[in-house]
Nucleic acid binder design. Structure first.
Length: 837
RNA sequence: GCGGGCGUGGCGGAAUGGUAGACGCCGGGGACUUAAAAUCCCCUGAGCUUUGCUCGUGCGGGUUCGAGUCCCGCCGCCCGCACCA
């Protein structure tokens, strides 16, 4: 063997060998148990970044490990290839989105290959290819037939920069999630998916996802936002009625005013005759929507002069227009109970409205004053006529029953979740397969005419939708009546593309989206790995799409991802200098890092070492995976991605760290070179350590505790290095090689080749001898009054009495006792002895 | 404001209620070398009167023979959500 491992030549050689042997091709007809390991597929931006490397390395280690454990593993890769950046590139550089995207895919695929991932490239897919999006159109038509797709005129979130419609989820603090531009409201005819039909199911389903992070489940639960309450109508003094919704109908006797949103019809009606009201409404709409602004925003109201009659007391409650009431939730109007709702409390305080107590800890507290804030908690009803004495829950049920029997209201469940608007006025997306005919209306494209492909000749010189202004593309004959008609020019939200790609990976026939039999074999995905930023959007849509396909009988599985893991970001220090009052940033490659600071290589002068934050181009604190691979090899960067930080937390990148990893690669190489099949002799300690490590690393990998697995591998390496040559030592070297092979596959292959046993990629995970997991000697802690004073090395299973005697015999213990009488002795066998004096 | 998470050496982090700081990085010392690189060995929480002792897991209490771990109350940081009736 060579003295040094040379990744530059070994990496590509083994990557070619795996391709040649088709090692990672998943066999659909395999008799082995299945394991589907999936990482979120990337957008083909052109270059992979270090976050991809971390994500895919984790998945790769798990996939390779599962293969070694005897599973038929599906570990595929593809491209989330539609979307805005390709059109931006077209506008900026004059390149075609298709050409730009496909070139990026070629580059990024080469980059992924250089990292040696065990992927089944035969199943590679790109959502921008007609083979994929044509099948998506077919599924879309199926959902349409099932009544889960519809069109409606709706006010949409219009992004003036991207010139497109955004879903609610894509609007963050009133700004487009991609462009950051302030979103406007516009009325457009839009395509929708009936995700609200699945609200209950999607909520219920969360409870079955016990291998998902609690945090993600909570976020989805909040997003779906189920609430139960009473909807009822007030009769107004002007003769109209006003529907309100309340989740606290038990507090109805505490209502002291009614509030409507600024854009509620009542408000609009009052505004028609009053400039003052119009000004107030304008003021309400002006308010910011960021968290900080909302928190400090003052409650503002305008008395309309109208009153509402209380259904029980008959009191006339003033109707206010209030800035804290939202038009798009519930009915856009609320009954305000200041005593038991903080917003109402603040409002009532400001406008000097009555604050009544209708819930108290007990009946004696019925007239207890409020301590400057509303009491939203549980208790019993007071000052509430027939509800008095009931708990909040009882009173809710009672009032709803009363309203329903009286016919003036009904119990109602309100959801925060809205239907999913999927229309995008863009070119680079899946064409929505419909035709608009003046005679027949909206007509689906017949399935045999699919795919509806995108035209190639498009211009991006002006903003707006290139499909809509294309000279010929949209002109077609109506499939029903044959008269001239017009194609739908909207394309689908790219989140639709990523809502079923995991099904297409499992099965990709030419003539249909997938084969249900294969879906049954592979799904659900055993382990899904990706970024937390997809906690709501992608993951909720994929769950919905899967359930929708299940409902119409296309598949059986209801939850696509059995276990979900969200990995942390890769971070790095920021280097900067102040120049002309603003910071100038430098990349890590321009910097010389010293013990207590950093200097710029170019001039040798110091730079400021800033915080460790997420890598971003604007701060220049990025490293290029390709450069790292070229310098240190694929195995070193893979090892770094797994080391030190727990995978769910952020991983701070450092140049010293990657060098340490590269050193360890060489250290292992030297150790592997010491493998000697002819060595003789047993070394029980080495045997034991090796077997314990196999068991522990298996456990760590299965729970994705890669940092712990790495630490154990270091330990075993240290033990073997120090051991004298023996058959045990050689066996341990071989074991170590197998353990690191999922993590450092190139190094492992290069060394394994000298054993003449074929590819380590096809090797089995080492068997564990349970007898060797148990130590026969243990170290016992001896404490005096809970403080460690000595340790004893004894045979495992030494009797309590003997341990106590040995402990008392210790000189150190006697000194610590200092003649005091031992009053109590606690013995935990094989663990410790505690002498209490 | 609500929900969730986290606070352990210079740094990343280990620790079924049972020897705190595994493992790695940084740093220091030494060996090898003409020299360097590479490699190997040793040290590396703080303090002290250094065969050893004391303190030490954000702060203050508590439970326990024994608490980083459990309970109560604070402080700080991070993430998510948010005038959702």
């Amino acid at each position: 063997m060579n003295e040094r491992f040379d990744p530059a030549q070994a990496d590509t050689r083994w990557q070619a060998a795996w391709d040649e042997a088709q090692c990672f091709k998943a066999d659909d007809s395999s008799a082995k148990p299945r394991s589907y390991v999936l990482e979120m597929f990337p957008y083909p931006s052109g270059r992979i970044h270090i976050g991809h490397v971390r994500n895919y390395t984790m998945g790769d280690v798990l996939a390779r490990y599962k293969r070694m454990k005897g599973f038929e593993v599906l570990h595929p890769m593809g491209w989330d290839a539609f979307g805005m950046p390709a059109e931006n590139a077209a506008m900026e550089k004059g390149v075609h989105p298709g050409g730009w995207t496909r070139e990026n895919i070629t580059n990024m695929k080469a980059q992924l290959k250089r990292l040696g991932f065990a992927l089944d490239w035969s199943r590679e897919l790109a959502t921008c290819e007609p083979e994929y999006y044509g099948q998506e159109q077919s599924l879309f038509l199926d959902l349409y037939e099932a009544g889960l797709v519809y069109r409606k005129e709706s006010a949409v979130n219009w992004d003036p920069v991207d010139q497109t419609v955004l879903a609610n989820e894509q609007v963050i603090d009133g700004r487009g999630w991609r462009s950051g531009a302030l979103v406007e409201k516009r009325k457009l005819s839009q395509w929708f998916l009936k995700i609200t039909d699945f609200a209950e199911e999607l909520l219920e389903g969360l409870s079955t996802l016990d291998k998902w992070p609690e945090k993600v489940r909570t976020m989805q639960e909040n997003w779906i936002g189920k609430s139960q309450g009473l909807q009822f109508a007030f009769t107004l003094s002007n003769g109209e009625t006003l529907e309100v919704y309340s989740t606290r109908p038990d507090t109805i006797f505490g209502a002291s005013f009614v509030a409507v949103a600024a854009d509620h019809p009542i408000a609009q009606g009052v505004a028609a005759g009053s400039q003052e009201v119009q000004d107030f409404i304008a003021l309400c709409k002006q308010g910011g929507t960021t968290a900080a602004e909302l928190e400090t925003a003052e409650k503002l109201g305008f008395d309309t002069g109208i009153t509402a009659k209380h259904p029980f007391t008959g009191a006339d409650l003033p109707v206010y227009i209030a800035n804290f009431v939202l038009m798009d939730y519930g009915t856009g109007a609320v009954m305000a109970v200041p005593g038991h709702d903080q917003r109402d409390f603040e409002f009532a305080t400001k406008y000097d409205l009555p604050i009544l107590r209708v819930v108290a800890a007990n009946a004696e507290d019925a007239d207890k004053p409020f301590a400057g804030e509303a009491e939203a908690g549980d208790g019993i009803c007071v000052n509430s006529d027939f509800l008095n004495g009931m708990s909040v829950a009882e009173a809710k049920a009672a009032i709803i029953a009363r309203a329903e029997s009286g016919g003036w209201g009904e119990g109602k469940t309100v959801w925060r979740l809205r239907d999913w608007g999927v229309s995008r006025q863009r070119y680079w997306g899946t064409p929505i397969p419909f035709i608009h005919c003046e005679v027949c209306g909206v007509v689906p494209v017949p399935k045999k005419q699919l795919p509806v492909t995108l035209p190639e000749d498009v211009d991006f010189a002006t903003p707006g939708n290139p499909l809509a202004r294309h000279a010929t593309w949209k002109h077609v004959d109506c499939p029903q009546c044959g008269k001239p008609a017009r194609r739908e020019t909207d394309t689908l939200d790219t989140f639709v593309d990523s809502s079923w790609y995991f099904l297409r990976f499992a099965s990709q026939p030419d003539d249909k989206p997938f084969d249900p039999a294969q879906i049954r074999e592979w799904l659900p995905v055993e382990q899904y790995i990706g970024g937390i930023e997809h906690a709501i959007l992608h993951l909720l849509y994929a769950r919905f799409w899967t359930r929708a396909l299940a409902r119409i009988g296309k598949i059986e599985v209801k939850e696509p991802f059995g276990s979900l893991f969200t990995q942390g970001m890769v971070t790095h220090e920021v280097y900067s200098r102040e120049e002309d009052g603003r910071p100038v940033y430098f990349g890590p490659s321009e910097i010389e890092r010293t013990a207590d600071g950093a200097t710029l290589k170019e001039d040798g002068q110091p730079v400021t070492v800033g915080k460790v934050i997420k890598m971003s181009k604007s701060k220049k604190n990025v490293v290029d995976p390709d450069e790292i691979v070229a310098t240190y090899g694929a195995d070193a960067i893979r090892w770094f991605m797994l080391s030190d930080s727990p995978p769910e937390r952020d991983l701070p990148w450092s140049e010293a760290g990657i060098e340490g990893c590269a050193r360890f690669v060489q250290r292992l190489w030297r150790l592997f070179g010491q493998h000697d099949a002819a060595a003789e002799g047993e070394d029980k300690a080495v045997d034991r350590k090796a077997h314990q490590t196999v068991a522990a690393v298996a456990e760590d990998v299965e729970s994705l505790g890669f940092n712990k697995a790495v630490a154990r591998i270091y330990e075993l390496t240290g033990v073997i290095e120090k051991a004298a040559p023996s058959a045990s030592r050689s066996a341990a070297i071989r074991t170590l090689l197998l353990l690191v092979s999922p993590m450092m596959p190139h190094l492992a292959e290069e060394a394994y080749a000298t054993f003449g046993e074929g590819l380590v990629a096809n090797a089995a995970w080492p068997e564990v001898d349970p007898a060797l997991l148990v130590e026969d000697e243990v170290t016992i802690a001896v404490q005096v009054k809970g403080k460690l004073r000595d340790t004893l090395t004894v045979a495992k299973g030494t009797a309590r009495e003997e341990l106590e005697a040995l402990a008392l015999a210790s000189e150190k213990v006697q000194r610590a006792l200092d003649g005091a009488e031992v009053r109590k002795v606690i013995v935990v066998p094989d663990r410790l002895v505690n002498l209490v004096a």
